[in-house]
Deep mutational scan, measured.
Amino acid sequence: DETGKFLVLALYDYQEKSPREVTMKKGDILTLLNSTNKDWWKVEVNGRQGFVPAAYVKFL
């Protein structure tokens, strides 16, 4: 149950560059965990948590 969690859509592919980031593919649906930083949002994708560039995702 994803109640209270926001979902975001990956607009572009992103390859993680550090262990704190996660890789996503364009079209992936991600669970948004934290968006307090304007540049990097914490998400969960494929069972992994990490950061992606905020400009690469949008709210569903």
Rank of each mutant, 00 (worst) to 15 (best):
V52W: 01
G27L: 03
V45S: 12
G4T: 13
V22C: 07
M24T: 03
G47Y: 05
R48M: 08
L33I: 15
V52Q: 00
T36W: 10
L11T: 05
T23L: 02
K25W: 08
L9Q: 11
D1H: 15
L30N: 01
E16Y: 04
G4S: 13
F51L: 08
I29E: 04
A54E: 03
D28G: 03
Q15L: 13
G47V: 02
K58S: 13
K38Q: 11
Q49P: 07
F51H: 05
M24A: 02
K17S: 12
V52H: 00
K17E: 08
V57I: 11
N37A: 08
T36G: 10
V45M: 12
N34Q: 10
W40K: 02
R48E: 06
G27Y: 04
N46V: 05
K17G: 09
P53M: 02
N46Q: 11
K25L: 08
V8S: 03
D13N: 07
T3F: 12
K17A: 12
T3G: 13
A54T: 06
E21F: 06
F51E: 04
K5W: 09
E2D: 14
M24W: 01
A10L: 03
S18A: 09
V52I: 09
R48D: 04
L60S: 06
K5V: 11
S35F: 10
Q15A: 13
N37W: 07
F59K: 11
V43F: 01
V52N: 00
Y56R: 05
G27P: 00
A54D: 00
E16G: 15
K58E: 14
S18C: 08
L9N: 03
Y56F: 14
W40N: 02
T36C: 15
F59L: 15
T3W: 12
K38R: 11
E2Y: 04
D39N: 12
W40C: 06
D28A: 07
P53T: 02
Q15H: 13
G47E: 06
T23W: 04
A54C: 06
A55H: 13
K42H: 12
T31E: 09
D1K: 11
F59I: 15
T3L: 14
Y12C: 12
E2R: 10
E16R: 11
S35M: 14
R48C: 05
E2T: 14
G4C: 13
Q15C: 10
K25E: 06
T31C: 10
L32F: 05
I29S: 04
L32K: 01
S35E: 07
G47C: 06
L7A: 06
A55G: 13
Q15R: 09
Y14I: 01
A54K: 07
T36S: 15
N46P: 05
E21D: 06
V57G: 00
D1W: 08
T31G: 06
V57T: 04
Y56T: 08
F6V: 15
V45W: 06
L7F: 14
G27F: 05
D39S: 11
P19F: 09
M24G: 00
G47T: 05
K58L: 11
L9R: 08
A55S: 14
K42Y: 15
R48Q: 09
K26F: 05
D1C: 14
K38D: 11
L7E: 08
D28T: 06
R48F: 06
E16N: 07
T36R: 10
E16K: 14
K5Q: 15
V8E: 01
V8I: 09
L32C: 09
K25A: 09
G50T: 01
L32W: 03
N37P: 04
R20H: 15
K25Y: 09
Q15P: 06
G27E: 02
Q49Y: 08
W40A: 02
N37K: 05
